[in-house]
Amino acid sequence: MTGTPIPGESIDMQISDILRAISYPANKDSLVDAAREAGASNEVLSMLDGLPEQDYTDITSVTKLIGSNYGPGLGS
Rank of each mutant, 00 (worst) to 15 (best):
M1W: 12
M1P: 05
M1A: 14
M1K: 13
M1I: 10
M1E: 15
M1Y: 13
T2L: 02
G3W: 14
T4V: 07
P5M: 11
P5N: 09
P5G: 04
I6C: 03
I6D: 04
G8Q: 14
G8F: 15
G8M: 14
G8W: 14
S10L: 09
I11V: 14
D12C: 00
M13T: 12
Q14V: 00
I15R: 00
S16C: 04
S16A: 03
S16G: 01
S16Q: 08
D17Y: 08
I18M: 06
I18V: 12
R20G: 04
R20F: 12
A21D: 15
A21G: 12
A21F: 10
I22L: 10
I22P: 04
S23N: 12
S23W: 11
S23K: 13
S23P: 01
S23A: 08
Y24V: 08
P25Y: 14
A26T: 12
A26R: 09
A26Y: 13
N27I: 07
N27Q: 10
N27L: 03
N27S: 07
N27G: 06
K28I: 06
D29A: 02
D29Y: 04
D29T: 05
D29C: 01
D29L: 01
D29Q: 06
S30H: 08
S30Y: 03
L31S: 04
L31Y: 04
V32S: 02
D33S: 08
D33K: 09
A34L: 05
A35P: 00
R36A: 12
E37R: 05
E37F: 02
A38E: 11
A38S: 11
A38G: 02
G39A: 12
S41H: 06
N42R: 07
E43V: 05
V44M: 07
V44Y: 04
L45F: 11
L45D: 09
L45N: 09
L45H: 09
S46H: 06
M47Y: 12
D49F: 05
L51M: 08
P52N: 11
P52Y: 12
P52E: 15
P52G: 07
E53K: 13
E53D: 15
Q54Y: 02
Q54P: 00
Q54A: 01
Q54E: 08
D55P: 01
D55R: 13
Y56T: 01
Y56I: 02
T57R: 05
T57I: 03
I59G: 03
I59L: 15
T60P: 02
T60L: 15
T60N: 15
S61Q: 15
V62P: 00
V62K: 05
V62E: 09
V62C: 08
V62M: 10
T63I: 08
T63F: 07
L65H: 10
L65W: 11
L65R: 12
I66C: 04
G67D: 15
G67K: 15
G67C: 13
G67F: 14
S68M: 11
S68I: 08
N69D: 10
G71N: 06
G73K: 11
L74V: 03
G75I: 02
S76F: 13
